[in-house]
């Protein structure tokens, strides 16, 4: 039994640059600029920020889809290798799994739900045949789908159902950490609420740790214990969800909060331009 003080994710000094264009048009973008953060076992950390703030890059580095230029990631007490071998990648997959933004793109359209989940079971737990069938039905039940859905192709499912399958597939590896990269952003508001409730339920039941990447502040309060605000690859604020949303300290967080659409909200052009323009103006 782990104590609450134990950190399942420890990230320190993470840097990542992207270069675009060639010759004179060559630009470097600092997607991650010396990012350090820790996530306690069993908690949910929301990472918020506008597009291009580096939050998705953070998720991709954490799961191993991108390689960081500098810095260290420690997952469940084990440092993650920069150039992992196959066995290390498999071990990492059992520590951390990811749910992607695009529900239809995250499932292979030619493979049934059963095949998609079965592949993960076979890869990590060597479960096949009737054992696998039972596990698949279990997993589908946990994400609120029926056994009949096992034989469906992704095209026959709704967006919400597809995302439930993607969650079931991630759970099949029995990870300790689930990275949710804008996992509900592509869903209708009502379906969004259902999936968020489901995610909260699963976290309680399985004692999972979530890293919840989102641009949408309205969903943050529903899921997370803590919030990290990112801007231009840097962490500008961190605190408990209520504290950050109700009493933000950093001006950027204030702007972010005030620019979120809500009933009766009218966009103020000055604020919008502030967000995309310079820090100095925004902080003035």
């Amino acid at each position: 039994m782990s104590t609450t003080a134990e950190n399942v994710i420890e990230i320190s000094g993470l840097c990542k640059q992207f270069t675009t264009g060639r010759g004179r048009k060559r630009r470097t973008v600092r997607a991650l600029d010396d990012v350090s953060l820790t996530v306690a076992d069993g908690s949910c950390l929301a990472v918020v920020g506008e597009s291009g703030s580096g939050k998705s890059t953070l998720a991709r580095v954490l799961v191993g889809l991108e390689r960081a230029d500098a810095g260290e990631v420690v997952l469940a007490g084990r440092p993650v290798a920069q150039r992992p071998r196959r066995a290390e990648r498999r071990a990492r997959a059992r520590d951390v799994q990811m749910v992607f933004q695009d529900p239809s793109g995250s499932l292979n359209r030619r493979r049934t739900v059963e095949a998609a989940i079965g592949e993960v079971l076979a890869a990590h737990h060597r479960v096949t045949g009737s054992d696998a069938r039972r596990r698949i039905d279990d997993l589908l039940d946990q994400v609120g789908l029926r056994p009949a859905h096992a034989r469906a192709l992704p095209g026959e499912l709704s967006g919400g159902q597809q995302q439930r399958v993607a969650i079931a597939r991630a759970l099949a590896a029995e990870p300790r950490v689930l990275v949710l990269d804008e996992a509900v952003a592509a869903l209708d508001v009502s379906v969004q609420a259902q999936v968020l409730n489901l995610l909260a339920e699963i976290r309680r039941a399985r004692r999972l740790t979530y890293l919840f990447i989102t641009h949408d502040l309205s969903v943050v309060r529903q899921v997370s214990d803590e919030v990290v605000v990112m801007r231009r690859g840097q962490v500008v604020e961190r605190g408990s969800t209520d504290q950050v949303l109700d009493h933000p300290r950093h001006p950027y967080t204030v702007l972010l909060r005030d620019s979120a659409p809500r009933p009766g909200w009218r966009p103020r052009l000055s604020i919008n331009s502030d967000i995309s323009s310079d820090t100095a103006e925004a902080e003035a």
Binding site: G64, R86, R90, F100, G105
Partner: peptide, 26 residues
């Protein structure tokens, strides 16, 4: 570039397996 390929990659499957099992049929 689609997420299903990256999801398969995350499982630690080799490039050969992902290419033949996932990309080729599509």
């Amino acid at each position: 570039r689609l997420a299903y390929v990256q999801a398969a990659e995350l499982q630690g499957l080799s490039g050969l397996v992902v290419s033949l099992r996932h990309i080729l049929p599509n």
